[in-house]
Design a protein around this nucleic acid. Sequence first.
RNA 1: GCCCCCAUCGUCUAGAGGCCUAGGACACCUGGUUUUCAUCCAGGCAACAGGGAUUCGAAUUCCCUUGGGGGUACCA
Length: 482
Amino acid sequence: MSVRVRIAPSPTGNLHIGTARTAVFNWLFARNQEGKFILRVEDTDLERSKSEYTENIKSGLTWLGLTWDEGPFFQTQRLDLYRDAIQKLIDQGFAYPCYCTPPELEQMREKQKATNQAPRYDNRHRNLTAEEIAQFEADGRKPVIRFKIDDEQKIVWNDLVRGKVVWQGSDLGGDMVIARTPEQDSETFGQPLYNLAVVVDDIDMDITHVIRGEDHIANTAKQILLYEALGANVPEFAHTPLILNTEGKKLSKRDGVTSIDDFRKMGFIAPALTNYMTLLGWTPPDAQEIFTLDSAATQFYLERVNKAGAKFDWDKLDWLNSQYLHSMPSDDLLSLLIPYWQEAGYQFDTGADKQWLLDLTTLLAPSLTRLTDGVKDGALFFVDGVTIASDAQEFVAQDGAKAVLESVGSQCESGLTLDGAKAIIKAVTKEFKVKKGLVMRSLRVGLTGALHGPDLIQTWLLLNQKGMDKTRIETVSNSISN
RNA sequence: GCCCCCAUCGUCUAGAGGCCUAGGACACCUGGUUUUCAUCCAGGCAACAGGGAUUCGAAUUCCCUUGGGGGUACCA
């Protein structure tokens, strides 16, 4: 049987890094096994689900390169399927109506906690008589549907990343709710709940491997029972470790930046992000740390996925992102940078300025960690005018600097070449009998207002092509007193 | 509380009984390259949670302790 896996996000928020990482593992596994990767939107929580989040999830997965082979499927469009399954479970005696009210359940749990017992449903309505049911109905109570979970039974599965996992039925919290209270009088039961819907869908979609976060382990035990009651084959399960925050807790929306959208806006690129997410819990056999999704897929095995949670490390992500940015062809990098520059309001013509933009990209590339650094570093080249840093001001106040700048400034002409620039620097060094360092550093201050920056002559050439060198040098030299 | 899972440098990890004096990467520190910053290169610091058991031999197997995490809904 061919492999079929799925990513099943719930549209209650933007695409989360944890969901994305699960998607990565599923995608890699599907690719490795030449199987199918399916997208299913779990929107049975009508209260919290929003279509804008669905769009965000789809665009996020696409941006990351995690394309799906089938779907997206929506659970809200498959309600009949769940309804049939629930009815079947009731008919076959696997499920029954429970008329307990939320306050009653609340009270029951309070009592259990008070006596140091595990809070659970005590299965009190499992064997209601027809008379009792009639009485509840007459009282106007509406039932939820509960699926019987035998306390005595043991649930066992061979987890593909954890090995054998054993669960005791009694530790599952009692008979589980699979359908909510009906909202309309005509209905005998309401909306399906997560565990039921997941199983029905996974059966219907012939899912062979369920790869998901470790936080679902307890659900797996419950779901296996559902598979069996529905007479379906139980798929393989693999529970991946969680991504943890700095405190070592499960990364949640409250940890600030967690949505894929946020990472994109911060200047991370998709290949670096997927590379990093993969590395969080998995290492390729060859120990290579920088790899594409495609190459990882060729050697991806669930058995190599770690068991322990992994803390999210910004430093490592930054490093990976910078590696990608540094090794990328200039025109690729340029096209990534352009949107950021445009958003910053920088004026340029992508046609006429093409070569200039490419040269600028080459100049800036080694200093980029995130694409957003290109905005900061590029300001100098797109925005006229210069502000002088205090240490630069100080440097340029020394003897000779002003004269050097005035001399260089007077020699600035359009059409400056590399050799021309070198010749001017050499001539000025000779003329004033100063060290080359003084000329270079003064010139840097004259051109950029700072003591540090990328290659000076290239910087000069680029500014010259935009006619910004002469006036800038003059502005700075005029600002020097004496 | 109860149940489950997990445990190697600060972080991500390699390690399936002798190859481990525990390897790599990030971060950090030092040096080199550079007019400077960045890049790049070279080097350094730094870990098997603790205790038992098995074994000639344990980071690797087993048990206990400790620590961390997850779950415990008419959320997903």
